Measured scan of single mutants.
Amino acid sequence: TGEEYIAVGDFTAQQVGDLTFKKGEILLVIEKKPDGWWIAKDAKGNEGLVPRTYLEPYS
């Protein structure tokens, strides 16, 4: 389980392990790392690192 967040901007993977997403996408945050990069999963089940500055809590 995780917390749902909504993307407030588009993000394109910079390196292997990053997750590309579009503004408005709902992501499930699995782990919040202290460096500001969180592990998240998208609706298709893809998992990767995302920058927390692009996310806001979804309710």
Results as ranks from 00 to 15, higher is better:
Ala13Arg: 07
Phe11Lys: 04
Lys22Ala: 14
Lys32Tyr: 07
Leu27Ser: 00
Thr1Arg: 09
Asn46His: 10
Ala7Val: 03
Gln15Lys: 15
Glu25Cys: 04
Lys23Arg: 14
Thr1Asp: 13
Tyr5Cys: 02
Ala7Arg: 00
Ile30Ser: 07
Gly17His: 07
Val50Ile: 06
Gly36Phe: 06
Ala13Ser: 12
Phe21Pro: 00
Gly2Cys: 05
Thr20Ala: 13
Phe11Gly: 02
Trp37Ile: 10
Glu25Thr: 08
Gly9Leu: 11
Gln15Arg: 14
Asp10Val: 03
Lys22Val: 14
Ala40Met: 13
Glu47Arg: 10
Gly24Cys: 05
Gly36Val: 04
Leu49Val: 14
Leu28Pro: 00
Ala13Asn: 04
Lys23Met: 10
Asn46Trp: 06
Tyr58Gln: 07
Gly24Tyr: 10
Val16Ser: 09
Gly24Glu: 03
Gly9Pro: 00
Glu4Pro: 09
Asp18Gly: 15
Lys41Ser: 08
Val29Ser: 01
Ile6Cys: 04
Pro34His: 13
Phe11Arg: 10
Asn46Ile: 10
Ala13Cys: 05
Asp42Met: 02
Ala13Pro: 07
Ile30Asn: 03
Lys23Gln: 09
Lys23Gly: 04
Val16Thr: 15
Glu56Leu: 12
Pro57Leu: 15
Leu19Pro: 02
Tyr58Ser: 08
Asn46Gln: 10
Tyr54Gly: 05
Gly45Glu: 05
Ala13Met: 07
Val29Phe: 02
Gly24His: 06
Glu56Ala: 08
Ala13Ile: 03
Ala13Phe: 03
Glu47Lys: 15
Lys23Asp: 04
Phe11Met: 04
Gly24Ala: 04
Gln14Trp: 08
Glu25Gly: 04
Gly17Ile: 04
Thr53Gln: 14
Glu47Thr: 13
Gly24Trp: 06
Val16Gln: 08
Glu56Ile: 14
Asn46Leu: 11
Ser59Glu: 09
Ile26Pro: 03
Asp18Ala: 08
Asn46Glu: 12
Glu25Pro: 00
Val29Ala: 02
Val16His: 10
Val8Trp: 05
Lys22Arg: 14
Asp10Thr: 07
Leu49Thr: 15
Phe11Cys: 03
Ala13Leu: 04
Ile26Thr: 06
Asn46Lys: 09
Leu28Ser: 08
Ile6Leu: 10
Gly45Leu: 05
Ser59Trp: 09
Gly48His: 02
Ile26Glu: 02
Lys44Cys: 05
Tyr5Val: 03
Ala43His: 13
Ala7Ile: 02
Gly24Asn: 07
Glu56Tyr: 09
Ile26Trp: 07
Pro34Thr: 14
Val29Thr: 02
Lys44Pro: 03
Tyr54Thr: 06
Ile6Gly: 02
Leu28His: 11
Gly36Cys: 05
Trp37Ser: 09
Gln15Pro: 03
Gln14Val: 12
Gly2Val: 11
Val29Glu: 00
Pro34Ile: 08
Pro57Val: 09
Leu27Asp: 00
Lys22Glu: 07
Leu55Met: 06
Lys23Ala: 08
Arg52Trp: 14
Ile6Met: 13
Leu28Phe: 15
Thr20Tyr: 04
Thr12Ala: 10
Lys33Trp: 08
Gln14Ile: 12
Glu3Tyr: 07
Glu4Gln: 10
Asp42Leu: 03
Glu31Gly: 09
Ile39Cys: 04
Gly17Ser: 09
Lys33Gln: 11
Pro51Ala: 08
Val16Pro: 15
Val16Tyr: 08
Gly9Lys: 14
Glu3Ile: 14
Thr20Phe: 04
Lys32Trp: 07
Pro57Ser: 09
Lys23Ile: 10
Gly45His: 06
Gly36Leu: 07
Glu56Arg: 13
Lys44Val: 12
Pro34Ser: 12
Lys33Cys: 05
